[in-house]
Simulated scan of single mutants.
Amino acid sequence: MTAESLFAECIIPGCKQPVTDELTPCQTCRTIFGPMLHEADRPPSYTAADLAERDAGTAAA
C-alpha cells in the first residue's frame, strides 16, 4: 500500500526526492548536475501528469 506524498517529487527523471514546487529539481540534483541545469524564462508546457507518464518506463525498469 502506498500513501500519497504531501510533497511533489523532483523533476529530474528517476529522482524521488521531495520538493515544494513540482516543476523544480531537488537540492541534491542541483548539487550533482550544477551548471548543466538551466531555468527557462517561459512557463513549462507540461504538467506533473505528463512527467509521470514520461518517467513510467524508467521507473518500471
Rank of each mutant, 00 (worst) to 15 (best):
M1W: 03
T2V: 14
A3T: 15
A3L: 15
E4C: 00
L6T: 14
L6Q: 14
L6A: 15
F7Q: 07
A8H: 14
A8K: 09
E9Q: 13
C10I: 05
I11C: 10
I12T: 02
P13Y: 05
P13K: 08
G14C: 00
G14P: 00
C15E: 04
K16G: 00
K16Y: 01
P18F: 02
T20F: 10
T20I: 05
D21G: 00
E22A: 13
E22Q: 09
L23K: 08
P25A: 09
P25D: 04
C26L: 03
Q27R: 10
T28H: 09
R30N: 10
R30K: 15
T31K: 14
T31C: 08
T31L: 14
I32W: 08
F33M: 09
F33V: 01
G34H: 09
G34N: 13
P35Q: 11
M36K: 10
L37H: 05
H38A: 06
H38N: 06
E39V: 03
E39R: 12
E39C: 04
A40S: 15
A40V: 11
D41H: 08
D41T: 06
D41F: 03
R42K: 15
R42Q: 10
R42P: 00
P43R: 04
P44S: 04
P44T: 04
P44F: 01
S45R: 15
Y46C: 13
T47F: 03
A48D: 10
A49G: 04
A49F: 07
D50M: 05
L51R: 15
L51C: 07
L51Q: 08
R54Q: 13
R54D: 12
D55H: 03
D55V: 00
A56Y: 10
A56G: 06
A56C: 11
T58C: 07
A60P: 00
A61S: 14
